[in-house]
């Protein structure tokens, strides 16, 4: 009886494992996080939500300077009317932080996208095929990486003379490609020696298919983990540009520009510097925390391969 049942079971096709909905998987992952990671995740969700839906939230006009018309005070302390107070032009700091998140996140997202898509692809490709292509591409990457990043960025931004969000995102995005290429290549080199890649080659699978189905999917977790850390770096980089007056033109709010503009009054009032600085610190810290958590998870999975 048992023998019959066993034979029957073997002949039936194995059903694919039931994949849970995204929100369920996210909820499960969230529950597995430590408190620090949970707080970081919540902060990032709030920042992203604010940046995306700022126009629909009950916020004050981030650029309105009421003091010109005697309707507001400059550098006003936090209050019920102005949650984070006002800046040197009597603008609502809370609204400017929310709107300022847009610039930081758009720049970070574009840099991550450039890095993941272009850097990730080329890195995976050269790490897999190796040979002359690898030598040429990595030589180019090394040359770009040899330049001090901020100096190169300053030179490009100055040269272009146009500083809107698109240009800033594009320039930072371009400069993000080399590090991702390096990370992807390193992972691809390792993965291309794994048994499943060897097996695929042995059965005559086309190299492009191997790259697409075996290499890139296994490089991605490491790249995502790196992207979180890199995004934090990019936010600081954009902040540095803005602090130097070389990011998006005013009056578009950016955290770096807010800090730069408020520093001239730092002897008088602290909150116009404090709040945008805190927003940047918490965001960078959160990205690093979540990035570390992701890296730890991807390492576990890697070892399980």
């Amino acid at each position: 009886m048992s023998e019959v049942e066993t034979n029957t079971a073997r002949t039936e096709p194995i059903p694919p494992p039931k994949r849970r909905p995204v929100w369920v998987r996210f909820a499960k992952a969230f529950m597995e996080m430590g408190w620090g990671v949970k707080l970081a995740t919540i902060w990032l969700i709030l920042i992203c939500f604010g940046a995306i839906f700022a126009d629909f939230l009950p916020l004050k006009d981030p650029n309105y300077q009421g003091f010109i018309y005697g309707l507001a005070q400059t550098n006003e302390n936090p209050s019920g009317t102005y949650l984070f107070g006002t800046d040197d032009l009597s603008r609502d700091i809370f609204a400017r932080i929310i709107y300022g998140a847009r610039v930081s996140l758009v720049v970070a997202l574009s840099a991550v996208s450039f890095g993941l898509i272009i850097g990730g692809f080329f890195g995976s490709l050269v790490g897999f095929v190796r040979g002359r292509v690898d030598t040429v591409v990595m030589a180019g990457v090394d040359v770009i990486l040899a330049f001090p990043g901020l100096v190169l960025l300053l030179a490009l931004v100055t040269f272009l003379q146009t500083r809107n969000l698109l240009v800033i995102s594009f320039v930072i995005g371009l400069l993000s490609i080399p590090p991702y290429t390096r990370v992807a290549r390193a992972n691809a080199l390792s993965i291309s020696r794994r048994e499943f890649v060897t097996a695929a080659e042995a059965i005559g699978t086309k190299r492009f298919v191997i790259l697409w189905r075996e290499i890139i999917p296994n490089v991605l977790p490491s790249l995502f983990a790196y992207a979180m850390v890199a995004a934090a770096f990019i936010i600081v980089l954009e902040g540095s540009l803005a602090f130097l007056g070389l990011s998006v033109q005013p009056p578009t709010p950016t955290w770096g520009a807010m800090i730069n503009q408020a520093r001239k009054d730092i002897r008088l009032v602290l909150h116009p510097v404090l709040f945008p600085s805190a927003a940047m610190v918490f965001t960078v810290l959160s990205l690093n925390t979540v990035g570390d958590w992701l890296r730890a998870r991807s390492s576990v999975r890697g070892s399980a391969l």
């Binding site: 300077q65 005013p250 009056p251």
Partner: peptide
């Protein structure tokens, strides 16, 4: 310069 940038924004507004 931060002060000039501030003044410029007032003029713009």
């Amino acid at each position: 310069d931060p002060t000039l940038i501030a003044a410029m924004q007032v003029v713009q507004q």
